[in-house]
């Protein structure tokens, strides 16, 4: 058996001693932190299992699974909302395509070039972060009263609202020095601009790109404040339908519809977090 130098044992012993110390004398700051953290997590997550219980209870106002367990509300909920869910999906994909076509070049410019007006461009893109959603919607409807029926305003409002998030996720990825260097090498080796984009740039930013796409998709699927003024009976999104369920429908159906909505949104949210792209939107 080979012997390790004493220092190796020493540092090992140090670490375990420190761990031991931490276990014996719990740091009150961490203890407070742990208590508050579990409270916050409980508050954030408790509604989700509750949603499941209410949505599968035949008669919730009488208590837990009063009248028995049922999938009827979920079936009824899906029958009510599936046209709106499909509309929201289509809308989110449209918004995504426009965001990408407009935002990718803008993110590129902001990441790669120091031009006069760069700060101004960035500030302009970020304006919707400071303007309440209903103000954006009201402004759009006053500017283009006739376009509301076509659904164009709904698309425009959501594009404007989601664009800052796309650009803020993509620009740092595009600004990596290593990526810029590799593109330069490829250019000197004779790669065309299209080849560089397809084989160097896009693969290098793929996780940021994926995070940005999922983020825009989630924001669009859940958008309510901008959409509330801009929807029409023919262009009605899932959150608008959710809202009318909350106001008018029975609590079990509302819970079932919310559950269906969360099935679209929560997996996406977890994926964004794993890709390191959490961003702060409106509520």
């Amino acid at each position: 058996m080979t012997t390790l130098p004493d220092s190796a044992y020493g540092s090992q012993a140090n670490v375990s001693a420190r761990r031991e110390q931490r276990r014996q004398a719990p740091n009150p700051i961490m203890a407070i932190g742990r208590g508050f953290t579990w409270f916050a997590v409980l508050l954030c997550l408790a509604p989700m299992p509750l949603l499941l219980v209410v949505a599968t209870t035949a008669n919730w106002p009488l208590g837990f699974w009063a009248g028995g367990f049922t999938l009827g509300w979920l079936r009824e909920g899906w029958a009510t909302v599936h046209p709106y869910a499909l509309f929201s999906l289509r809308l989110a994909l449209t918004v995504l395509a426009i965001d990408l076509a407009v935002g990718l070049p803008a993110a590129w410019l902001i990441a790669r070039h120091a031009f006069p007006g760069r700060q101004a461009l960035l500030a302009l893109i970020n304006v919707p972060l400071a303007v309440p959603g209903i103000a954006i919607a009201l402004a759009l409807i006053l500017a283009y009263p006739l376009a509301r029926a076509s659904g164009l305003l709904l698309i425009a409002g959501q594009v404007v609202y989601t664009l800052p998030f796309l650009v803020a996720t993509l620009a740092p990825a595009l600004a990596q020095p290593a990526l810029i260097e590799r593109e330069a090498v490829a250019r000197t080796l004779g790669a065309s601009a299209m080849q560089r984009l397809l084989y160097i740039t896009l693969p290098a930013i793929r996780s940021a790109l994926l995070a940005a796409l999922i983020l825009v998709f989630t924001l669009s699927m859940g958008e309510f404040n901008v959409s509330f003024f801009l929807f029409t009976p023919l262009n009605k999104t899932l959150p608008i339908e959710l809202y009318s369920a909350y106001i008018t429908n029975r609590v079990e159906v509302a819970a079932a519809i919310t559950l269906i909505f969360l099935a679209f949104v929560v997996p996406a949210a977890i994926a964004i977090e794993r890709l390191g792209g959490s961003k702060i939107g409106q509520a």
């Binding site: 954030c44 997550l45 509604p47 609590v251 959490s278 939107g281 509520a283």
Partner: peptide, 21 residues
């Protein structure tokens, strides 16, 4: 991760959560 999930919830859903609780 649990503490970032509410970021993707619209305000109406949060309101409904309060109603459920």
């Amino acid at each position: 991760v649990a503490l970032t999930i509410p970021l993707s919830l619209p305000g109406i859903v949060i309101g409904f959560f309060v109603i459920l609780l």
